[in-house]
Amino acid sequence: MGSDVTLSCTISRLSDTVSLHWKSRDSSQQDNTDEIHLNNTVYLIARHVGAENQNLYTWEVQENDSIVLTGNTNVDVDQNLLNKIYTLYRPGTNHSELDLICEALSELNETKWTWRSSQFQNQEKEIASTIRSQPIDVNRTYFENRLVPTLGNFNDRSFSVRIVPVLFDDAGVYTCSLGSYKFVTIKLTTVKVTAEPSDTVTEGDTITLTCSVSDVTESMRLAWINSDGKTVGEKILNGGNREEKSLRLIVQKADRGRGNWICALFYQNTPKVLIPYYLKVNMRARPLPDIWIVTVLGYLLVKLVVAVGLICCLKRMNRKSNSGNPHKATGNETDDAQDAVALQTLNSDTDLRP
């Protein structure tokens, strides 16, 4: 009880009109699940199974949005937490939660939760404690207001606390103890996504997305998945001391509408953590033409039109004059003289500076 479970439903062929889905039969528990589609399989990650009877699930095959096949799955939950050790995986996001569940009968002994950080493994710190029928004392030194008890008083059985939201540095080992006896131990592994240069980029820029895991003790796999459900990058982690526990994805020339990715952590080919990442892309500002250039070009264009019109008028007047007076000089000399006057007028007008 309190651990996570991953359910999977696979179909032999997945056409464009067919889709797979998981859902909880208790609608109030939908927020404790994550769904991911990879190839012909849909996975459902259910968190803290068994708590509040959230162990009933349904899979569905839909064709053209109509259910054509369905089935129920029940998860058998062991209620006895004595000497249990299990691992939980959580994203370091604003919406993640961690329930530290301890169901233990304690009549006289002090019950407490301790935390040993992944960064300082030799230091075990007490984060919450209580005695029978007494208020739960929470130490806010390490988690501040993010650590809260699920019940006001210890009712001789349920001594559970919750961390909301979970941060990347919360990774480590959490232990519920009765006196000097360790009852249940929970190992927390966290995953986070960072972006450089920032979460918001301009269209055409290059950005680097990094998916990191806090601790690797066994073989794991990090993967980047695009909006089409296709893996665009992956890395196997084996837990070596010098091993870099992260996977980078370089997004070249960020484009609008293509800013959705998922960072996924797999353990033994089973997805454990999904972090959707939505990249905000701003439209690049288009440079405006220089106002002085526009002004000068417009001025010169007007002058050119005026000059051409003036030359055409002078030529027309010259032709009419020659046709009315045959004794007047004709030929190129008169035309050239009038053209020279027009050009001189144009030069005097255009010899201006903006």
Rank of each mutant, 00 (worst) to 15 (best):
I163H: 09
V166K: 02
L167Q: 10
D169P: 03
D169V: 04
D169Y: 07
A171M: 05
A171I: 05
A171C: 10
G172A: 06
G172E: 03
C176D: 05
S177M: 13
T185H: 09
T185P: 12
I186C: 04
T190W: 03
V191H: 05
V193L: 07
T194S: 15
E196N: 14
T202K: 14
E203I: 10
D205M: 11
T206V: 15
T206D: 15
S212F: 11
S212E: 15
V213N: 06
D215F: 01
T217A: 10
E218W: 00
M220D: 06
M220N: 09
M220G: 01
R221P: 00
L222P: 09
N226A: 08
G229P: 00
K230R: 14
T231K: 06
K235Q: 04
L237Y: 05
G239H: 14
G240A: 09
G240Q: 11
R242Y: 06
E244S: 15
K245Y: 08
S246P: 02
L247F: 11
R248A: 08
L249H: 07
L249Q: 03
V251M: 05
Q252G: 01
D255V: 13
G257P: 03
G259R: 08
N260A: 12
L265Y: 01
K272Y: 00
L274Y: 03
L274P: 04
Y278W: 02
Y278G: 04
K280F: 03
V281E: 08
N282G: 02
A285I: 14
A285N: 10
P287A: 12
L288T: 12
L288M: 12
D290E: 14
I291A: 15
T295Y: 11
V296H: 02
L297W: 00
Y299W: 10
Y299S: 09
Y299F: 08
L300I: 09
